[in-house]
């Protein structure tokens, strides 16, 4: 595999590097906006699970465009992880399942009357390989995002989040329908055809009568209607599937030549933002100096000294 093979296999990965986006997912939000105009006239927006920050980048670019009164624009990026700073964005390192985080967002926007007009969430877990768990974890992330959204979103506001389509997605759509007038499933052209991801675009937030915004926990929820929302066929029919992005544009499943057009010559570019602290980072560091093909690395924590133990009296060649 050559250095450029990913550039050829994944056009949006390459374009993201060339246009300075932190991740290819930036194009997904841009393509959703092309169709739904969710960024139009928005001055207060929240990006949940923001790291590495490509959606925040889109907000930071588009919300300040053609605007004279920049101080009106308020963008908050929330994540548990630290994220490299972006111009015009307030970062909040916090947990989206905590009420305090919701309060901090509301305070930043200037109180109850100045709630967010748009909440977006592109967060996803590392997939385990068991689709049922992955789909469940993603749905819980979405519910957590929805919970905090019910606190911070103003009536009439919009909410966009990633979902994994699978066997239980109808239930999720039904739950979202309780809070929004219109719910659509969007598949941007930059999201691969083979990928299970799609996006829910929820428009016109309207809190149901008697509902007190809270952190939704599936088991101990007082609001039974959320738990009991069913995947009835009536509900299904209300959810339109919308393909976003110009299909005559770039195809995310297609491999492209490095020479996209005749005039410009291809130059290789490094990624804008590398992963900050992946789980495998430590082991990769350790494996730079030794192999664990037949042995293991043992760390005794009392003295934190590293010793390499072999599988069996493994004398070297």
């Amino acid at each position: 595999m050559g250095k450029t093979s990913k550039d050829k296999r994944d056009i949006y990965y390459r374009l993201a590097k060339e246009e300075g986006w932190r991740a290819r997912s930036a194009f997904k939000l841009l393509q959703i906006d092309e169709k739904f105009h969710i960024l139009k006239d928005v001055t207060r927006a929240v990006d949940l699970c923001a790291a590495p920050g490509s959606w925040t980048q889109v907000l930071s670019k588009r919300l300040y465009e053609n605007r004279t009164n920049n101080e009106e624009v308020k963008i908050i990026a929330v994540d548990l992880q630290a994220m490299a700073p972006l111009p015009g964005v307030t970062q909040l390192q916090g947990d989206i399942t905590k009420l305090s985080t919701a309060q901090a967002i509301i305070d930043h926007f200037g109180g109850e009357s100045q709630k967010a007009q748009l909440v977006i969430c592109d967060g996803a877990p590392d997939v385990t390989g068991l689709h049922d768990i992955d789909e469940y974890i993603q749905s819980q992330l979405l519910l957590a995002a929805l919970s905090i959204t019910t606190h911070v979103l103003m009536t009439g506001g919009n909410f966009v989040a990633k979902i994994f389509r699978g066997k239980d997605t109808n239930l999720l759509y039904s739950q979202l329908r309780i809070f929004f007038e219109k719910v659509s499933i969007a598949k941007p052209a930059s999201s691969r055809n083979s990928s299970i991801e799609a996006f829910v675009v929820c428009q016109n937030y309207r809190c149901p009568d008697g509902y007190i915004p809270q952190m939704i926990n599936p088991m101990i929820d007082d609001v039974q209607m959320i738990v009991n929302a069913t995947d009835s066929s009536v509900n299904q029919k209300l959810i339109p599937f919308v393909v976003c992005g110009d299909l005559r544009g770039f195809d995310s499943d297609m491999s492209y030549s490095l020479n996209l057009n005749e005039d410009s010559e291809y130059t290789y570019k490094e990624v804008v933002q590398k992963p900050i602290s992946p789980a495998y980072k430590e082991i990769l560091e350790k494996l730079k100096n030794c192999s664990i093909k037949h042995s293991a690395i043992t760390i005794k924590h009392e003295d934190e000294a590293v010793t390499t133990e072999s599988a069996s009296n493994d004398d070297s060649k």
């Binding site: 082991i283 350790k286 664990i292 042995s295 293991a296 690395i297 043992t298 760390i299 005794k300 924590h301 009392e302």
Partner: peptide, 8 residues
């Protein structure tokens, strides 16, 4: 007490 790294 200790950690073991044996898997890839």
């Amino acid at each position: 007490l200790a950690s073991g790294y044996g898997h890839i």
